[in-house]
Design a protein around this nucleic acid. Structure first.
Lengths: 200, 200
DNA sequence: GGCCGTCTATGACGGCTGTCATAGTAGCGG
DNA sequence: CCGCTACTATGACAGCCGTCATAGACGGCC
């Protein structure tokens, strides 16, 4: 989700990407349409052309993009694991945030969380988009767990636990400007996750 | 955190309470000063009198209030438990949210989370206030765990896990407008929490 | 009565917001 | 050259925001 992913794509995709990026910082309220255009280095006139639904549509697509991004990372994390264990996968998910937090001043959060906090009660479509984003994230995550030997019945529940813990710990970590909460949940939840694996 | 807690106190306290209430709905951006005044049924002129620091001060105090409120609930939850176990305490914390979600349309979130999402990168004082709120919540929670037999070394870590899980699951629950994520983390984390108790 | 500190009332100001109306350009098939 | 579509440019608009300036009310205390 760092810079560099924006180049090469068209203006439309860049705007969605930039919107997601800015949502992570100050939420929906602090993310102006003009800011998105400038961040994406896109023409302002393209806004009403590509997003006739206005800010709501842009936010929704940014949330959708974030969900797909998170889902895609799951497979990459599994591939990068020396041996595929649930605790290892969870640690990798957490490490993505601790690494970003370790880089100077970077304390951005999750765009989906921002959308929920700012718009869940206001925009039904945004609320739905956020729910869909969580679902597209949970799917591959639960799939990875079952591949590691977690019974299908528990895999989805544990995937929800993993996402909840990461999102919540990220909130605390941003407030404290410290990775403590993130590393804590990774350490404490590891045994629980690995304990769900059934040997065969 | 429901209605009724506002009456009897002075206008100043009512405004802080109302600010926290409104923060839960739409975050900082959607919470206007005029909205707070109206919700608190307080005179508008009192704003610049009681909160010369402006909106930032009001938000910070609302966050601080929320932290103290959450801390106070911990003791009440423990007192209401038939037998004091970590899983029982966690279930009680979760139930507060599921109950509220079950009531029609109520999908408000946590004011501290809202402050973090919207202001963590903007206002240093608000970020600090949020970190303090989490700390005043974690303290009594860890204390309750040690009283139940959890070693002091792990109690604080598990308290962080509990808060992270609740905050994250609440995010998902608001998006889905369903208690699923909340009940899931309560069920899955119960054994882990109780397993930390050492018999004597 | 005169003074003062505490609190309230109200209108105004500049700035920013999302959105829209309108016009313009580029490229391409005919 | 025309016409059409896709895209861009730009200025304006109404509305809301947080903040401030100014003035008034109320009550106690010398």
């Amino acid at each position: 989700m760092t810079a560099g992913e924006a180049s090469g794509r068209g203006p439309r995709a860049r705007m969605v990407f930039s919107a997601a990026q800015l949502l992570r910082r100050g939420g929906v309220g602090a993310t102006g349409m003009r800011d998105v255009v400038e961040h994406a280095r896109a023409p302002r006139g393209s806004l009403q052309h590509y997003f006739p639904g206005g800010k709501e549509q842009l936010v929704n697509e940014a949330v959708e993009w974030a969900g797909q991004y998170a889902a895609g990372r799951v497979a990459r994390f599994v591939a990068g694991l020396p041996e595929p264990t649930p605790s290892g996968l969870f640690a990798a998910m957490v490490r993505q945030w601790t690494d970003e937090l370790a880089r100077a001043g970077e304390t951005s959060g999750c765009p989906v969380a921002a959308a929920v906090v700012d718009r869940a009660d206001t925009s039904e479509s945004t609320r739905t988009a956020a729910a869909a984003a969580f679902a597209t994230w949970t799917g591959p995550l639960a799939g990875a767990l079952t591949d590691m030997g977690v019974p299908a019945a528990r895999a989805e529940a544990l995937a929800t636990v993993m996402i909840s813990a990461v999102e919540g710990a990220l909130l605390i970590a941003r407030a404290e400007r410290d990775v403590r909460a993130l590393t804590t949940v990774a350490r404490e939840l590891g045994p629980l996750l690995d304990g769900a694996v059934v040997r065969h």
